[in-house]
């Protein structure tokens, strides 16, 4: 070790000593003051975050975490209107198919969650953040897995395009949206949430702008095709629904909130004739039929 190195080491040692003496002094004399300051800074940071969130939500810049929290609260409202069908194999089946289709989408990393809800009404709902339900009444009309995929892909498209999130944002006050973007954990918190949820789920009774339904039809068939399903199955589903008359009250909300089925069918036919590029039409894998058989035959 030469002289130069030794002097460097000595310098470093002195620096260390000074720092440690200083911090000891801090421990002894200024700890409370320091703690207070830290507390104040923390508070300021939280206030700023809160303000930023309100601003973001108002300007349409809802981050992913807020979107998921809004979606969880909103879907809880729909689950309050109609609970999940008490059948694990059915729920798992729909979740696997839905997740696989969502993997082909532009937002594969959302927490995609699906459910069949107990209602004889015919409908399906998409909540922000990737929460999707369809009614048992609709599920029972399906003939094969491609038709199930068609419905899930349509709803997934609503989430990808943030149709409901935008609609809730546009119709809610900033404070409501901000409060809705919170993960409700405690019982008290959850009870407070009801008013907020009630005001936001109105969108499902009122329906989206009709152009968003046409948009979800257009994107949905492509997502289903990407996932390896027969994309024309969406037309099968729409035709089946069209065979149920408006006099059937299981369709009331659906018909009030969606464009006329004849127009949806015609629009999709034209689009797919002209623009759909697929390599082959896959044959049905018979899985939906097997799952239904299993569900029906199990006591």
């Amino acid at each position: 070790m030469n002289l130069k190195q030794l002097s460097k080491l000595t310098f470093l040692f002195l620096v260390c000593c000074t720092v440690s003496i200083n911090s000891t002094r801090l421990d002894a004399f200024d700890l409370d003051k320091f703690k207070n300051k830290l507390e104040k800074l923390k508070q300021q940071k939280e206030d700023l975050q809160e303000k930023k969130k309100t601003l973001d939500l108002a300007t349409g810049n809802v981050n992913k975490r807020d979107e998921i929290n809004i979606g969880r609260n909103v879907i809880s409202g729909l689950l309050g209107a109609a609970p999940l069908v008490d059948n694990e194999p059915l729920q798992q089946y729909v979740n696997k198919i839905g997740y696989w289709i969502a993997l082909q989408s532009e937002r594969p990393k959302l927490p995609w969650t699906f459910g069949v809800i107990h209602s004889k009404n015919i409908n399906a709902f998409a909540s922000p953040g990737g929460y999707i339900v369809l009614t048992l009444g609709l599920y029972e009309l399906l003939e094969n897995e491609s038709q199930l995929a068609a419905i899930l892909a349509h709803e997934i498209s609503h989430v990808i395009e943030k149709h409901h999130l935008d609609a809730i944002r546009d119709t809610s006050k900033r404070e409501i949206l901000g409060a809705l973007a919170v993960k409700a954990t405690s019982k008290k918190h959850r009870e407070k949430m009801q008013k907020l949820v009630n005001s936001s789920v109105q969108i499902y009774a009122r329906g989206l702008d009709k152009k968003f339904e046409f948009g979800a039809d257009r994107r949905g068939v492509v997502l289903a095709a990407r996932a390896g399903y027969d994309p024309y199955a969406m037309l099968d589903v729409l035709t089946t629904l069209h065979s149920i008359s408006a006099a059937d009250d299981s369709m009331t909300v659906f018909l009030n909130t969606h464009p006329p089925l004849a127009k949806r069918i015609k629009t999709l036919e034209n689009l797919m004739d002209r623009h759909l590029v697929i390599h082959n039409i896959p044959t049905d894998n018979q899985r939906l039929q097997r799952v239904n058989h299993m569900i029906a035959s199990k006591p």
């Binding site: 809880s76 309050g80 109609a82 999940l84 009404n121 009801q194 109105q202 009331t252 909300v253």
Partner: peptide
């Protein structure tokens, strides 16, 4: 419970579900 317009609007959120 149910999915009529009124029922949707007044549903109590079900977090257990």
């Amino acid at each position: 419970r149910g999915l009529s317009e009124e029922q949707i609007k007044h549903a109590k959120p079900d977090y257990k579900q």
